[in-house]
Amino acid sequence: NQESVVAAVLIPINTALTVGMMTTRVVSPTGIPAEDIPRLISMQVNQVVPMGTTLMPDMVKGYAP
Score class of each variant (00 low, 15 high):
29 P>Y: 10
65 P>F: 02
62 G>P: 06
26 V>E: 15
58 D>G: 14
48 V>L: 15
30 T>S: 09
43 M>L: 10
1 N>K: 03
25 R>A: 12
36 D>G: 13
29 P>F: 08
42 S>V: 03
23 T>V: 12
9 V>F: 13
5 V>R: 00
56 M>E: 05
13 I>H: 12
52 G>K: 06
20 G>H: 12
28 S>E: 15
64 A>Y: 04
54 T>K: 04
52 G>W: 09
57 P>K: 15
36 D>A: 15
14 N>Y: 12
58 D>C: 15
52 G>T: 05
14 N>T: 06
10 L>C: 06
51 M>L: 04
53 T>G: 05
54 T>F: 03
46 N>P: 02
34 A>C: 04
13 I>R: 09
8 A>F: 09
50 P>L: 13
37 I>T: 07
17 L>H: 00
12 P>N: 12
16 A>V: 09
44 Q>L: 15
47 Q>A: 15
65 P>S: 13
11 I>L: 08
29 P>H: 06
35 E>T: 15
19 V>C: 11
23 T>C: 04
11 I>C: 02
40 L>E: 00
22 M>N: 01
36 D>V: 08
5 V>L: 04
20 G>F: 11
50 P>S: 12
14 N>F: 07
28 S>Q: 15
21 M>C: 03
49 V>F: 01
55 L>I: 13
42 S>K: 10
50 P>W: 10
16 A>L: 08
45 V>S: 06
64 A>E: 09
35 E>Q: 10
63 Y>D: 03
30 T>D: 08
48 V>Y: 09
29 P>E: 05
39 R>Q: 07
51 M>P: 11
65 P>I: 09
21 M>D: 04
45 V>E: 01
9 V>A: 14
31 G>K: 02
42 S>M: 08
65 P>G: 11
7 A>V: 03
22 M>C: 03
41 I>G: 03
17 L>Y: 01
51 M>F: 11
33 P>S: 08
47 Q>V: 15
15 T>S: 07
21 M>S: 04
40 L>K: 00
6 V>P: 00
6 V>M: 05
24 T>L: 08
39 R>L: 05
5 V>C: 03
22 M>L: 10
42 S>L: 12
9 V>G: 06
6 V>Y: 03
2 Q>C: 03
12 P>I: 03
48 V>D: 04
13 I>S: 05
60 V>Y: 02
28 S>Y: 12
29 P>R: 05
55 L>C: 02
40 L>Y: 02
63 Y>Q: 10
51 M>V: 12
51 M>H: 14
2 Q>A: 13
39 R>H: 14
47 Q>Y: 11
9 V>W: 07
50 P>D: 12
25 R>C: 03
58 D>I: 14
33 P>E: 03
63 Y>V: 03
57 P>V: 09
26 V>I: 15
24 T>M: 09
23 T>W: 11
65 P>K: 03
23 T>Q: 11
26 V>F: 06
42 S>D: 15
1 N>A: 14
47 Q>L: 11
9 V>D: 04
21 M>K: 03
42 S>Y: 10
41 I>M: 11
29 P>V: 09
40 L>C: 15
62 G>A: 09
11 I>W: 01
34 A>Q: 11
53 T>H: 08
26 V>K: 04
14 N>E: 12
53 T>D: 05
18 T>F: 08
20 G>E: 13
50 P>R: 08
35 E>A: 06
52 G>I: 02
23 T>I: 08
30 T>V: 13
20 G>C: 06
39 R>M: 09
60 V>W: 01
5 V>K: 01
16 A>F: 14
46 N>M: 09
48 V>T: 11
38 P>E: 12
47 Q>P: 00
7 A>K: 00
11 I>N: 00
49 V>R: 02
14 N>P: 01
40 L>G: 00
27 V>W: 03
10 L>S: 13
44 Q>E: 10
38 P>R: 10
5 V>Q: 01
48 V>E: 07
10 L>Q: 12
36 D>T: 08
6 V>T: 06
7 A>E: 00
51 M>K: 13
58 D>S: 15
44 Q>W: 10
16 A>T: 15
11 I>S: 00
20 G>L: 11
59 M>G: 01
8 A>Q: 10
24 T>H: 09
1 N>G: 11
60 V>M: 05
11 I>H: 00
41 I>W: 10
24 T>F: 11
18 T>S: 11
54 T>L: 06
25 R>H: 12
45 V>N: 02
23 T>P: 01
22 M>I: 04
39 R>S: 08
5 V>I: 12
43 M>F: 15
29 P>G: 04
61 K>H: 13
65 P>Y: 02
18 T>M: 10
53 T>E: 08
65 P>N: 09
33 P>T: 06
49 V>N: 01
3 E>S: 04
11 I>F: 02
31 G>N: 01
31 G>Y: 02
22 M>R: 01
36 D>S: 10
49 V>C: 06
22 M>G: 01
48 V>S: 12
23 T>Y: 11
45 V>C: 03
16 A>E: 09
7 A>Y: 02
30 T>H: 15
4 S>M: 02
28 S>K: 03
40 L>W: 02
37 I>D: 01
48 V>W: 09
15 T>W: 08
33 P>D: 04
54 T>W: 02
45 V>T: 13
41 I>V: 05
41 I>T: 14
34 A>N: 07
13 I>M: 12
44 Q>R: 11
20 G>S: 14
42 S>R: 06
11 I>T: 00
42 S>I: 02
59 M>N: 03
23 T>A: 07
64 A>S: 13
63 Y>R: 04
17 L>K: 00
32 I>T: 02
